[in-house]
Every structure is written in structure tokens, then in C-alpha cells.
Amino acid sequence: NKASVVANQLIPINTALTLIMMKAEVVTPMGIPAEEIPKLVGMQVNRAVPLGTTLMPDMVKNYE
């Protein structure tokens, strides 16, 4: 099973992601793959992301 990106803390709306906000975890359903973490740094979330939430592509602005 591949790990996904999971919020390590509450991430407020429009916050630019940093490494300490994210962790890799095997979850179902899968979200953004953990190997994308370096690419996510500096990208903004378009909603508040609660602690423990799996990051999905539609939660990150301009994620492709």
C-alpha cells in the first residue's frame, strides 16, 4: 500500500503548506501520494483541513 499525505495539524484556509504540516500515512481512500510532499510545499489549501485529514487533490490550489 502506498502512503498518502495527511494533515499533521489543523491547516487554516489559504495557508501555504510547509513540511511540518504534513505526514505520510497509509489511508483509505488514498489521497495525494506521499512522494508529492516536496511539490506541495508552498502551495495553498483552498479550505480548512482538520488534523488527521487526508489531503485530496481538490483541497490544494493549482495542484495537478
Rank of each mutant, 00 (worst) to 15 (best):
residue 52 G to A: 06
residue 36 E to I: 08
residue 40 L to E: 00
residue 8 N to G: 09
residue 20 I to E: 14
residue 38 P to Q: 06
residue 12 P to S: 07
residue 35 E to A: 03
residue 63 Y to I: 03
residue 10 L to P: 15
residue 35 E to C: 14
residue 8 N to I: 10
residue 25 E to M: 06
residue 25 E to D: 13
residue 28 T to V: 07
residue 5 V to N: 01
residue 34 A to N: 05
residue 9 Q to P: 00
residue 58 D to L: 03
residue 8 N to S: 09
residue 63 Y to D: 03
residue 59 M to I: 08
residue 46 N to R: 09
residue 49 V to K: 00
residue 61 K to V: 09
residue 2 K to D: 15
residue 21 M to W: 04
residue 60 V to G: 01
residue 3 A to R: 02
residue 8 N to H: 14
residue 15 T to V: 12
residue 13 I to Q: 11
residue 45 V to Q: 01
residue 54 T to V: 08
residue 29 P to G: 13
residue 26 V to W: 05
residue 22 M to I: 11
residue 17 L to S: 00
residue 14 N to G: 08
residue 19 L to I: 10
residue 39 K to Q: 08
residue 35 E to P: 12
residue 41 V to M: 08
residue 47 R to I: 11
residue 14 N to D: 14
residue 57 P to L: 04
residue 2 K to P: 15
residue 27 V to I: 04
residue 11 I to R: 00
residue 23 K to I: 05
residue 15 T to S: 05
residue 53 T to F: 09
residue 57 P to Y: 07
residue 4 S to A: 10
residue 2 K to G: 15
residue 42 G to T: 03
residue 9 Q to N: 03
residue 49 V to M: 05
residue 4 S to K: 02
residue 47 R to G: 06
residue 58 D to P: 09
residue 47 R to W: 04
residue 24 A to C: 13
residue 64 E to G: 14
residue 43 M to T: 09
residue 9 Q to W: 04
residue 60 V to Y: 02
residue 34 A to S: 13
residue 53 T to G: 12
residue 39 K to C: 15
residue 54 T to L: 04
residue 2 K to Y: 15
residue 51 L to S: 07
residue 36 E to K: 10
residue 1 N to E: 15
residue 8 N to M: 15
residue 58 D to W: 03
residue 51 L to K: 07
residue 3 A to N: 04
residue 43 M to F: 14
residue 53 T to M: 14
residue 3 A to I: 04
residue 57 P to F: 06
residue 24 A to K: 04
residue 25 E to K: 04
residue 30 M to K: 02
residue 36 E to D: 13
residue 64 E to W: 02
residue 41 V to L: 06
residue 11 I to H: 01
residue 20 I to W: 09
residue 6 V to P: 00
residue 34 A to D: 13
residue 39 K to V: 07
residue 46 N to F: 08
residue 15 T to W: 08
residue 5 V to H: 00
residue 32 I to H: 01
residue 59 M to C: 07
residue 23 K to T: 12
residue 5 V to L: 03
residue 21 M to N: 12
residue 18 T to E: 12
residue 45 V to G: 01
residue 50 P to T: 12
residue 9 Q to S: 12
residue 19 L to N: 10
residue 5 V to Y: 01
residue 38 P to A: 13
residue 7 A to M: 10
residue 7 A to R: 00
residue 32 I to M: 05
residue 46 N to W: 11
residue 43 M to L: 10
residue 31 G to I: 02
residue 27 V to N: 10
residue 59 M to P: 00
residue 22 M to W: 01
residue 42 G to L: 06
residue 8 N to K: 11
residue 60 V to S: 01
residue 9 Q to M: 06
residue 42 G to M: 05
residue 33 P to M: 07
residue 42 G to Y: 05
residue 31 G to C: 07
residue 22 M to F: 10
residue 19 L to V: 07
residue 44 Q to V: 14
residue 10 L to D: 11
residue 37 I to A: 05
residue 7 A to L: 02
residue 64 E to P: 14
residue 50 P to I: 12
residue 23 K to N: 05
residue 51 L to Q: 09
residue 31 G to R: 02
residue 47 R to T: 09
residue 37 I to K: 05
residue 61 K to D: 12
residue 11 I to C: 04
residue 46 N to Y: 05
residue 32 I to E: 00
residue 42 G to R: 07
residue 51 L to P: 10
residue 27 V to R: 06
residue 59 M to Q: 08
residue 39 K to D: 04
residue 37 I to M: 13
residue 56 M to L: 10
residue 45 V to L: 13
residue 57 P to V: 10
residue 52 G to Y: 05
residue 16 A to P: 10
residue 12 P to Q: 11
residue 27 V to L: 10
residue 34 A to F: 15
residue 27 V to S: 10
residue 19 L to S: 13
residue 64 E to Y: 02
residue 8 N to Y: 13
residue 35 E to G: 03
residue 59 M to E: 14
residue 30 M to S: 12
residue 48 A to R: 12
residue 17 L to T: 01
residue 35 E to Y: 04
residue 7 A to C: 05
residue 43 M to R: 11
residue 23 K to R: 14
residue 7 A to I: 04
residue 40 L to D: 00
residue 30 M to F: 07
residue 2 K to E: 15
residue 25 E to P: 02
residue 18 T to M: 04
residue 25 E to A: 05
residue 57 P to N: 04
residue 64 E to Q: 15
residue 31 G to M: 04
residue 59 M to R: 02
residue 46 N to H: 11
residue 47 R to Y: 10
residue 47 R to P: 03
residue 31 G to Y: 02
residue 35 E to M: 04
residue 5 V to A: 15
residue 33 P to F: 10
residue 40 L to K: 00
residue 27 V to Y: 03
residue 29 P to V: 09
residue 56 M to G: 04
residue 56 M to V: 07
residue 24 A to W: 12
residue 30 M to P: 11
residue 12 P to M: 08
residue 64 E to S: 13
residue 49 V to G: 01
residue 42 G to W: 06
residue 54 T to C: 13
residue 46 N to M: 13
residue 23 K to C: 14
residue 6 V to E: 02
residue 32 I to L: 06
residue 53 T to I: 08
residue 62 N to K: 12
residue 21 M to Q: 05
residue 6 V to G: 02
residue 28 T to G: 11
residue 41 V to E: 07
residue 62 N to P: 03
residue 44 Q to L: 12
residue 60 V to T: 02
residue 5 V to T: 08
residue 47 R to N: 15
residue 14 N to F: 11
residue 27 V to W: 03
residue 28 T to C: 15
residue 51 L to H: 08
residue 38 P to R: 05
residue 26 V to T: 02
residue 38 P to Y: 13
residue 48 A to Q: 04
residue 40 L to Q: 01
residue 52 G to Q: 14
residue 29 P to E: 13
residue 9 Q to C: 10
residue 40 L to Y: 02
residue 54 T to R: 10
residue 13 I to D: 11
residue 4 S to L: 01
residue 46 N to D: 14
residue 51 L to I: 14
residue 33 P to G: 14
residue 36 E to F: 08
residue 53 T to N: 11
residue 12 P to E: 15
residue 34 A to W: 13
residue 29 P to S: 10
residue 36 E to N: 12
residue 63 Y to W: 13
